[in-house]
Design a protein around this nucleic acid. Structure first.
Length: 988
DNA sequence: TCCGCGAGCGCG
DNA sequence: AAAGCGCGCTCGCGGA
């Protein structure tokens, strides 16, 4: 029986005044918590100097591995060490199994994909834990031996609870042992055939609410201990601590210092004097099987700056081990370390040597026999490739700790509404900038270190996402602090000792980080998708380095025209406003301006109101035109509908139309201006930054500076992207890919057959819904169906559908018609409805699954979370929110339910494109097509630039790469790729 | 002057 | 019960 269902008040553990041993306290608490595999993971938090652990279930609840002490409970450790000690005499069989598994894991660890070894290790450990618990239950050893094996000093403090209390420990119900790496849906991994779980009948959705998570009466806020109770607990626990972890001599009391700081300080740093020594270092890395790479460059632009320093960290494993992180997964394994070779390219005597040194690095990067760990490897690889004259180089066995970190956080965030509380519980105080202003998304922890978040203020839920700079990731998992001031320092001139030290630390820290993140990938079943991400790095490097060809002179002409047009419409708007007697409201702290500013929504709304009033259309704070009501807002779709319902000469209509035209021209001008600003002086091309994984964890790329993914369609603007002299753009995209993916995800027979028969899916849908043959479908019906296809598969409702059909496809319908059409859609594709129901289940408590996290305080720990996966195995989880339901409070996912429908589909599309990019890169490399370059990726589209004479051949190659990749993800649905060789991007 | 917020809009 | 999703960029506005 889950402990939380037991009645009683909560048990609270406080370990106060741990000072320098704080992390040990956390570690012990975590070990105890993990021992309670049958409980819901309790909350552990740090409040100032106090460690507070709250267990749902109450003081009367027997909890394995916990001793009762007075009113509170002290968690003794149940570490692997203790388990092993216990098993030595009592269960040598299980111990042998564990040891064997451990060996297998250690040997298999470097090729990070060895999941099987991990599974066996977890299973062996679970078996041991189970046996231990049974033994405890049977009253074995009175509990004491199990907790403090012979090897440990058994001071008085370690004696633990009086005899009478020990029953609480022994009385634990065994419960199911913690399963071997439990994690969401193992079927999601690519290695296995993607399987969609059999969906429940559509009617099942929303039927019975999930069982409430525990008795609401037992819910208590996280508390630290105060007063007498805390004194008693502290004394007792101090003693336990002393006996288990005697203080190191010279440790400053009260000051916290992560053991990894010492580990980093102890890393050997070797300056590399010459090319021969560098080659020897690379050989050492090869022999180790894994290494970490980092570079410092003279600037941030690979096309204008150069690599200055290369740091190569080689692991020094402890005798007989293949790991640097200890079995508790937070502290360093004793006897382990790192050697960091620092090569200063500028110090090499000859220019030829620099080149040779880079070539040697390229050799390492190409070597599939050694794993290369880096943080944001894109940066280093772009410089490496540029440093080698832009030559395409093979890149194998990469492990990017930034991408790994982004993958394992998988869309997790803190909802804006819980932000302050969440921070307070963790002792995160607001940070201020140098002007004393409070920063919203940066906080300061107890040690004065900055914890940075990414805040998205555009979303309804105002999420705060974790960030993934090396500094943040190292702080999160190892609690080391890597100062940033040297990162931005000048790496061009004479280097200080501090700079070299800093550079070396950055590389060394990657080695333990890799181990922790690799395990997180394994536990969360993210290894396959991580392989996709790492494999597509070289293609990303290629895109950033190649850039898009851009016709700047023509762009300047268009910009002038767009500005002129915007000015014209602006004049018209100002005249209309003045004619209606519009006077702008004064803005605080701003100079008073006479006329209307069409960029100010305040001005625009005021003016709309005034004009409507003049025409007698104002009804309260809304507009009423021909019996139809409009919110007073100025979105384009509103203006469009408004204009279409007003008479030709109406000033309001003229204003709406002029505003729409002004905004369109302004937007074009903005794009053109931005692009011209960002045109690269060295290449005369546009080189956007690609972000491979975004905070929501869907998996699509995003681009910035500039974002060419939002380049306008259907105008002359795309024509500006014209292949350079003698070349062509080869453009290929997947057609209707999200519908095809939905057919695979849902397994809908009708939808699948439609694709098998290669019909026009929009026409087909329209025919099915109207009960007609596809050839009888009218143009309007097909247009409407197009709107349905893209909206309904993601959960769009009738009301939105009605609006969307009109504004996007110019199809007018009543709400009733829209709703009827929606129902007809799901009757046509019933499996899609069923799949929706299945996805929705995952947003409710009964559909939650284990999600593993890691930080220095708690080590590995898991929570039940709402989740979905793509067909590539990519995971997205959500935070939970407690919501009042009709039958009591229960947990559900934060944010919109429709995300559950969209993510597997959109994310699978991303998996496919990334795979195709990786595959294409290898193919181009293999064929030696050096003049063919990947230049853009836009969600379902890839763009290459190729010499004219090769264009047709390349189009075929590209199409094949994309199709082959897609068939791996969508075994049951055919995929169509349209590939063409064009002069400009506009021709597609 | 900087920061945060909100509206609005380009793409898939 | 209610519900398209995912991005980046620009501008105005108010507060410190």
């Amino acid at each position: 029986m889950p402990a939380r269902e037991a009645a009683g008040e909560n048990s609270v553990v406080g370990l106060k005044g741990m000072g320098v041993r704080e992390f040990f306290a956390r570690r012990r608490a975590r070990a105890a918590i993990q021992a309670c595999g049958d409980m819901d993971v309790p909350m552990v938090g740090l409040k100032g100097e106090e460690l507070a652990v709250e267990f749902r279930g109450g003081a009367g609840t027997p909890v394995a591995g916990l001793e009762k002490r007075g009113k509170s409970v002290v968690p003794p450790t149940l570490s692997l060490f203790h388990l092993e000690a216990w098993a030595r005499e009592r269960r040598p069989d299980l111990l042998a199994r564990l040891r064997a598994a451990q060996r297998a894991v250690e040997e298999a660890f470097l090729p990070h994909e060895e999941e099987a070894a991990w599974a066996e290790f977890e299973a062996a450990k679970a078996a041991l834990e189970r046996a231990w618990r049974e033994w405890i239950m049977a009253g074995g050893g009175g509990g004491q031996d199990a907790l403090f094996p012979q090897e440990e000093p058994r001071g008085e403090g370690a004696k633990g609870a009086p005899e009478a209390d020990r029953g609480a420990v022994g009385g634990t119900a065994p419960g199911p042992a913690p399963a071997a790496p439990a994690s969401p849906d193992p079927a999601g991994a690519v290695a296995e055939t993607p399987r969609v779980p059999a969906p429940p009948p559509p009617g099942g959705e929303g039927a019975a609410p999930p069982a409430p998570n525990g008795d609401p009466g037992t819910e208590a806020p996280m508390v630290g201990l105060k007063g007498k109770e805390s004194e008693a607990v502290r004394d007792a626990t101090e003693k336990v601590q002393q006996s288990l972890f005697p203080p190191e001599p010279g440790a400053a009391p009260g000051a916290f210092r992560s053991p990894w700081e010492d580990w980093l300080d102890a890393a050997e740093v070797a300056r590399v004097p010459d090319l021969a020594a560098w080659r020897a270092a690379l050989e050492e890395a090869r022999a180790a099987g894994a290494c970490a790479l980092d570079t410092e460059t003279t600037g941030l632009d690979p096309l204008q700056n150069r690599v200055r320093l290369i740091q190569l960290a080689v692991p020094l494993y402890p005798e007989g081990k293949k790991r640097l992180v200890a079995d508790d997964w937070v502290s360093p394994e004793s006897g382990g370390g790192a050697r960091v070779y620092v090569l200063d390219l500028f110090a090499l005597p000859r220019e030829g040597d620099r080149r040779e040194a880079l070539e040697a690095v390229a050799g390492l990067v190409a070597d599939p026999g050694v794993l290369k760990v880096g943080h944001n490897l894109k940066f280093d690889l772009v410089f490496l490739r540029a440093g080698l004259g832009g030559r395409r180089i093979p890149m194998e066995r990469l492990f990017d700790t930034m991408l790994a970190s982004q993958l394992v956080t998988a869309g997790d965030f803190v909802p804006g509404g819980q932000w302050e509380k969440w921070c307070a519980e963790r002792g995160l105080r607001p940070a201020r900038n140098d002007r004393g202003q409070e920063l919203k998304a940066t906080r300061v922890d107890a040690h004065g270190h900055l914890v940075e978040f990414e805040h998205d203020n555009q979303k309804e839920i105002k999420p705060f996402y974790p960030t993934h700079s090396l500094q943040q990731v190292a702080h999160r998992h190892l609690e080391v602090w890597l100062p940033k001031d040297l990162q931005a320092s000048d790496w061009r001139g004479e280097l200080s000792e501090g700079q070299v030290r800093y550079a070396a630390r950055d590389a060394a820290v990657l080695l333990p980080l890799y181990e922790v993140l690799a395990r997180l990938l394994v536990l969360n079943r993210l290894v396959e998708v991580a392989k996709i991400e790492f494999a597509c790095l070289p293609a990303v490097v290629e895109i950033e380095l190649s850039g898009m060809p851009f016709d700047a002179p023509r762009a300047r002409e268009l910009l002038a025209a767009a500005r002129e047009e915007a000015a014209r419409h602006r004049g018209e708007l100002e005249a209309l406003a003045a004619g209606a007697g519009f006077v702008p409201r004064p803005k605080k702290g701003k100079r008073i301006v006479a006329g209307l500013n069409p960029d100010s929504s305040q001005d625009v709304l005021d003016c709309l109101r005034l004009l409507a009033e003049g025409e007698g259309l104002l009804a309260g704070d809304r507009l009423s035109v021909g019996g139809e009501e409009f919110d007073l807002e100025s979105r384009d779709e509103t203006l469009s509908r408004l204009a279409s319902r007003l008479p030709e000469g109406s000033p309001l209509r003229r204003f709406a139309e002029a505003l729409r035209a002004y905004r369109a021209a302004k937007k074009r001008a903005d794009f053109l201006q931005k692009w011209l600003e960002l045109l690269h002086p060295a290449t005369n091309r546009l080189h956007p930054d690609l972000r491979q994984i975004n905070p929501q964890g869907v998996g699509r790329f995003s681009a910035s500076n500039p974002n060419l993914q939002q380049c306008p369609r259907g105008s002359d603007i795309r024509q500006l992207f014209r292949a350079s002299e003698g070349k062509k753009l080869v453009v290929a995209d997947y057609s209707a890919i999200e519908m095809r993916i939905m057919a695979q995800l849902s397994g809908d027979k009708t939808m699948r057959e439609a694709f098998l028969e290669d019909v026009d899916i929009h026409r087909f849908t329209a025919g099915r819904m109207a009960g007609k043959a596809p050839e009888d479908v009218t143009k309007e019906e097909r247009q409407a169906a197009k709107a349905f296809n893209f909206g309904l598969i993601y959960g769009m409702q009738g009301i939105t559908l009605q609006l969307y059909a009109e504004t996007s496809y110019n199809v007018k319908m009543t709400l009733g018609e829209a709703e009827a059409a929606r129902e007809a859609f799901f009757r046509t594709y019933p499996a899609v409805a069923a799949w929706h129901a299945e996805q929705a289940r995952k947003g409710r408590e009964r559909g939650f699954a284990d999600y593993w996290q890691h930080d220095f305080g708690q080590g590995f720990h898991r929570e039940k979370r709402p989740w979905v996966r793509t067909l590539g195995g990519r995971l997205r989880v959500w935070p939970t929110v407690r919501e009042e339901g009709r039958e009591g409070p229960y947990l559900r996912k934060a944010g919109a339910f429709t995300e559950l429908y969209n993510t597997p589909d959109q994310g699978t599309g991303a998996d496919m494109v990334k795979c195709a990019m990786a595959r294409l890169y290898r193919e181009l490399l293999k064929r030696g097509l050096e003049d063919v370059k990947l230049v853009a990726t836009v969600h379902d589209e890839l763009v290459l630039e190729a010499p004219e004479e090769l264009a047709e051949q390349v189009a075929e190659l590209l199409g094949a790469a994309m199709e082959l990749t897609a068939s791996r993800f969508l075994p049951d649905v055919p995929v169509e790729v349209e590939a063409a060789a064009c002069e400009t991007w506009a021709e597609k």
